[in-house]
Design a binder for these strands. Structure first.
Length: 271
DNA sequence: AATGGCTATCCTGGGCTAAC
DNA sequence: GTTAGCCCAGGATAGCCATT
């Protein structure tokens, strides 16, 4: 059962779902299945009448809810219609508790998703692949291009949809969602380290497998003053920004490339 | 504790309108 | 004509609450 603020929303959603599955299903049919008169159900759905906890329990059971869902449904009813203040307050507290639990689960899932997205390079690969000419939403097609398994791609797509970086349009085709580059849920530093390790691994593979005319690998070793390191980092950042602006243009592309630059210490001056 | 007023639920039955 | 959705009236019932 989805989280709704109102028990009427649950009933309407259920009716809607049943009508979707069976075009001949109706409010009357729903009333029959819930063991209510059609007029009574109509009045409930249209805020003309309320429901007692006892009646709510019967309805929830007729909807096939699990025990905890029955209680939650009854609480949503009680908070609106219970006659005693205490019963309404108790139901309200239970609803708040349940909402807090659901929020916690959702936040945790988002954090896990964000962690996976930044730490497994092919998530970003899928998003970049979408800018390619002839992009196909077929996980097998994407998997072949990125060199990972279709299952990994399917899971990655689900994850990207959950965090709101991807969506499916009416034709079930994947679409990137406009965003400012921020991944919901925050990104733990360990996942960023894992991401960089994977990219370096990919660079090593490229050196071994890609022809020279299809890759560009340049390394310079130079002596630097400690106080110049921040400025050097800033210059690399500026270059990468300029580079991406020049090539990340709206038209369709035919390849996905990775530019990765490192500036790190390989030797220190002696004591 | 018993009582009565008040309010809301629950149900029945009938009727209206619109779509098929 | 049938069906569906909605509306209304009216009565039985149940729970709350203040008063006695």
């Amino acid at each position: 059962m989805e989280a709704h603020a109102d028990y009427r929303q649950i009933l309407k959603a259920e009716l809607d779902s049943r009508c979707g599955q069976n075009p001949r299903y109706s409010l009357r049919a729903f009333a029959r299945d819930l063991n209510l008169s059609p007029s009574r159900l109509s009045e409930i759905l249209n805020h003309k009448q309320g429901v007692s906890r006892k009646a709510a329990e019967k309805i929830a059971k007729n909807l096939g809810f699990r025990e905890t869902e029955v209680v939650h449904f009854c609480d949503l009813v009680s908070v609106k219609h219970a006659r005693s203040i205490k019963e309404r307050q108790d139901a309200h507290l239970r609803i708040l508790k349940k909402q807090a639990e659901q929020e916690e689960t959702k936040t945790f899932q988002l954090k896990l998703d964000a962690f996976k997205i930044i730490s497994d390079w092919y998530h970003i690969g899928i998003l970049e692949l979408m800018n390619m000419k002839g992009f196909r939403s077929d996980p097998r097609w994407i998997a072949r291009r990125l060199g990972v398994t279709p299952i990994q791609i399917e899971l990655a797509i689900d994850r990207l949809i959950r965090v709101g970086l991807l969506r499916r349009n009416r034709d079930d085709e994947l679409e990137a969602v406009e965003n400012d580059g921020w991944i919901p849920g925050g990104v733990p530093s360990e996942s960023i380290r894992k991401f960089h390790r994977q990219i370096l691994q990919k660079a090593m593979e490229a050196i071994a497998t890609q022809p020279v005319d299809q890759r560009y690998v340049q390394t310079h070793v130079l002596a630097l003053n400690k106080e110049d390191v921040p400025e050097a980092s800033k210059e690399i950042e500026k270059f990468q920004h300029r580079f991406c602006q020049r090539f990340q243009t709206p038209e369709q592309k035919d390849l996905v490339y990775c530019i990765s630059m490192q500036l790190f210490k390989i030797a220190e001056d002696g004591p």
